[in-house]
Amino acid sequence: MISGGSDSPRFAYKADRLKPLRAFCQTARLGSVSRAAEALYVSQPAISLQLQALERDMGVRLLERSGRRMTPTREGQILYELARPLVEGLDGLDAAFRDQIGGLDAGELHVAAGSSTILYLLPKIVAAFREHHADVRLSLHNVTGASGLDLLRSDAVDLAVGSMLDVPGDLSYAPVYRFEPMLIAPRGHPLADKRDLKLEDLSPYGLILPPKRLTTYRLVDLVFQQNRVPYTVALEVGGWEVIKQYVAMGLGVSIVTSICLTDADRERLAARSLAKYFPSRSYGVVMRKGKFLSPQARAFVDLIKPDLFVRGGYDETGHSER
């Protein structure tokens, strides 16, 4: 066996290095030797032996116990980030090879997205994907928040499309579109044509907002609090379509993202930009770091680009598309 210098790791099992690395990656990902054993359909002692061998040959401690979980050490995190794409790439080699041989005319694609994304952003993207890959079975999972992230982490979906404010360390987020915040009010409302609209001008009017648990409500509350402007909530209700309908009925005004405003909405509602006070909202692709994307998933991601969607948004350079 040819070995490196004195500072190089010495692997006694170079012909079978994949098993210990796979055991390490699963343990680091799942936080448990027993769960890693279940995922790999081997015994717990086998996983423990592979981890011990890997730590011995790397010459450093790779895992440590934190509460009830096994977590990577500083050195273990580095190895995890290096090894995970290699392990997943090898594990997915057969499927990737079959996909390349068979083209994109077979297989499945699972995408997680919230209601707003499915309703306003994805229709043209899905239509373009179906036009070119009609035989791929596409499933859109209507989920938001932590539920969508759980699906990503468990590999129940290939990717997610939506908006993120805080990105966890194990996920990657590539924003593609940006949409500005808008005040919507009934036609003829005092705010509809008010010059130099200020945040204080909204105080006398009740707001129709999504439920408190959602990001939009929290963001609205934060902006009003930071500017020390009082406000009242006339109604909490879920769904942009419902909110727009209630605003059109004269039950209040609302603050929405321009992604949900159609040409028909602008005929029945007055829309005013609030970009001076509220940040724009980005929408893009969310993936698990190190995730091996199938050709179907890569083709779908390639379609998520600004020139396919040109209504009331901004591309990734920040230029308005309206």
Rank of each mutant, 00 (worst) to 15 (best):
S3W: 09
A12E: 09
D16P: 00
R17V: 07
R17G: 03
R29C: 01
S32R: 15
V33M: 15
E38Q: 12
E38N: 08
P45F: 09
I47A: 12
I47C: 11
L49R: 15
A53L: 14
A53K: 14
D57V: 01
L62M: 11
R69S: 14
M70W: 12
T71Y: 03
G89S: 08
G89F: 08
G92Y: 12
A95H: 12
R98H: 10
R98W: 07
Q100D: 10
L109S: 05
A112N: 11
A112F: 09
A113P: 02
S116P: 01
I118F: 00
Y120I: 04
E131D: 02
R137E: 08
V143K: 14
G145D: 02
L151S: 02
L152Y: 05
S154T: 15
A156E: 11
D158E: 06
V161D: 04
M164T: 04
L171A: 11
P181Y: 07
G188T: 06
P190V: 05
S203D: 06
P204E: 11
I208M: 07
P210N: 07
K212L: 03
V223M: 11
N227T: 04
T232F: 00
V237W: 02
V242C: 08
V242F: 01
Y246S: 03
V253Q: 13
S258H: 13
I259W: 06
L261G: 08
T262Y: 02
R266I: 05
E267V: 08
L269F: 07
A271I: 05
L274W: 01
K276A: 15
Y277W: 13
S282V: 04
Y283I: 04
G284E: 03
G284M: 08
P295C: 12
D315Y: 00
E316Q: 07
H319C: 04
E321R: 15
E321T: 10
